[in-house]
Design a protein around this nucleic acid. Structure first.
Lengths: 204, 204
DNA sequence: GTCTATACAAGGATAGAC
DNA sequence: GTCTATCCTTGTATAGAC
């Protein structure tokens, strides 16, 4: 493995383990048995290294494509399951989300670009689910509320799990928050939608 | 004002402004025109100082009492409004919540004690709202889902607002998340409950 | 009881030798 | 491409002045 890749992969491992803020450049270098300035050669600052991880996560998430035309409750929720699995792989980033947004210019600038796209996609998914007869939402305002609530869960589920669902394994945590999203949709489900929800939640 | 109080109040001000992690002991001391070791006299470590702020917030929140027997949708939501207003006063703590839980022993130990009480209270509030005819929730499981969803919002609303509702003023942000809680309850509201919700949301 | 001076370890960043 | 030496900042500990 090339030095650069070794740095990236070990950094992710240690950051996930101890938290980005608690793994110093010296500690990372020592574990890799290289010098700090060798890391600096590939990544001028720690922010650059962390930004690289963020780009990797973005790339991983962009591989998850959802067919908005043929969307179902099942594909909608399984899509979130895949995203949540990626979140776990890069959990250090999500656990430091607020700080990174305040401190890491590269990440915060990029985030604002993708943020808008994501809520647009989510909104469009929900509208398609309505048209396809899975959801019954008359008031447009309720779609906005759902978008807002689901976005909040998707962004902070892993932080919440870290402080209050420590006793559950990762699968269990994902199951819990997918269920939460399902149940938030639940009051708006049609009969057809309700059947699918049952199926998905049982199969998680 | 006593030195100790000056330290606490200026620390809160600067932490809220720049973030706890980005205000050093030297910077705080310089602003107060005292020496770092003078702060150390009152607060042995930065963790002690931050813990003091956390205790102050707890005390402020404990002054908000809700009469579980005579609870209504209105008092339930206005209660959250008061809590959210306290959150804004001590927003540095909530924005660094995950880190503090990992790093500050004093805070994390205390949090685990109060955490259980809070979800118990919330659960009991919801059950009383059902009994009082404001909510119609047949499945006990749905109460647990609501507790989980509302707890997540109450814990991370300010972080979410910091990254995605920057354009709104603080009142507007509070209004947004109180509305969110209201709308999550909305599908379960009885006619009596629905009327109250309208009234509260209009009066926010 | 209150405050100060000073020293130390650990963090990130940088210039430059090889 | 790799590494040494060095700098600056941060939090913390301690000895001591008043």
């Amino acid at each position: 493995m090339k030095t650069e890749e070794k740095i990236v992969s070990k950094a992710l491992e240690m950051y996930n383990e101890k938290g980005i803020e608690y793994v110093g450049m010296r500690e990372l270098a020592a574990t890799l048995n290289i010098r700090v300035s060798n890391i600096t050669y590939y990544f001028p600052t720690k922010d650059h290294l962390v930004n690289r991880l963020s780009l990797d996560l973005n790339q991983l998430n962009s591989q998850i494509v959802i067919d908005n035309e043929n969307i179902t409750i099942e594909s909608f929720l399984l899509n979130f399951k895949k995203i949540f699995q990626n979140h776990i792989k890069y959990r250090c980033l999500l656990l430091s989300f607020v700080h990174l947004m305040e401190q890491n210019k590269m990440i915060s600038v990029r985030y604002k670009q993708t943020e808008h796209d994501r809520s647009t996609t989510l909104r469009s998914n929900l509208k398609t689910l309505v048209k396809a007869g899975y959801l019954n939402i008359e008031d447009e305002k309720n779609i906005e509320i759902l978008v807002s609530a689901i976005a909040l869960i998707a962004r902070f589920w892993i932080s919440e799990a870290a402080v209050s669902l420590r006793h559950l394994k990762q699968d269990g945590q994902i199951r819990h928050y997918i269920t939460l999203i399902g149940c938030i949709l639940s009051p708006y489900l049609t009969l057809k939608g309700r059947g699918q929800l049952e199926k998905v939640l049982n199969g998680l």
